[in-house]
């Protein structure tokens, strides 16, 4: 479903992705972790073309990303992206946030989109917040609206860029619960996160990145109980110490 073959990327002189080779199967959930600045956000931002790669092949849903022959706008409708800062549309209500892209991009009839939107908001536990504006919602509620907004497009892939990093601790689990439910329905997911409980519960694979390269990749059990490299051991000792 997602395949990186020898992908490289530079920000000016900075080599941010180094020879990335990684394949994600349909219905697979892959957690990407690593220290700050290791390139994990850049990695998933390349998948829907928010960042451009400079070298190597990146194939998503059988289409080559960055190829002039690929309609990226169309490909993006198949890929949901959840941002660290939610990025909800502040001038739209929760329901309008969910229905905006389906009605204008997918051309779904309004009534149908609204019905689906209400169901999705109910599914993420916000049945009473249809008409609330983002500024009236807590961080955890906003992030759940953002997830519903992605699901409204019925994507094949969902990407999460540190979805709980901007949240107060007591709101993290309500967002993780929604993500777990999405994963259990068989969504193909790549999740940049340090939430190891989430990784253990739903991920088939954990990818550890450092300085732009994939250092280690394995099942959550392998990675957490027997990390193979010094760098991953050092990283785990830091995040699991508390």
């Amino acid at each position: 479903m997602i395949e990186f073959r020898g992908v490289n990327k530079w920000f000016g002189p900075l080599h941010v992705l180094k020879d990335i080779t990684l394949s994600v199967e349909p219905r697979e959930v892959v957690v990407v972790c690593g220290p700050s600045g290791s390139g994990k956000s850049t990695l998933i931002r390349c998948i829907n073309g928010l960042e451009a790669t400079q070298d190597g092949d990146l194939v998503v849903d059988d289409k080559r990303v960055g190829d002039p022959a690929t309609n990226m706008t169309l490909l993006r409708t198949e890929i949901g992206f959840v941002f660290q800062q939610f990025n909800l549309y502040p001038h739209k209500t929760a329901l309008e946030n969910v229905t905006l892209a389906p009605t204008h991009v997918r051309k779904t009839p309004r009534a149908e989109a609204e019905k689906a939107g209400r169901e999705l908001l109910a599914k993420v536990g916000l049945a009473d917040k249809f008409n609330a504006y983002p500024s009236e919602l807590s961080g955890g509620q906003q992030q759940r609206v953002a997830i519903a907004r992605c699901l409204g497009m019925r994507p094949k892939i969902m990407l999460f860029d540190e979805p709980t990093s901007a949240l107060d601790p007591e709101m993290i689990s309500e967002v993780l619960d929604v993500m777990i439910a999405v994963a259990e329905e068989g969504m193909t997911m790549m999740v940049v996160t340090h939430e190891m409980g989430f990784a253990r519960r739903v991920a088939q694979r954990v990818v550890f990145m450092d300085q732009g390269a994939i250092v280690e990749s394995g099942t959550p059990e392998e990675f957490f109980s027997a990390p193979r490299t010094d760098r991953s051991r050092a990283f785990l000792s830091k995040i699991l110490r508390h």
Binding site: N48, T73, L74, T77, I79, N87
Partner: peptide, 14 residues
């Protein structure tokens, strides 16, 4: 904010 542009891009808007 840039994030608003990206949210639109990511959802497939022209």
């Amino acid at each position: 904010s840039r994030g608003q542009v990206e949210a639109g891009v990511a959802s497939g808007m022209t």
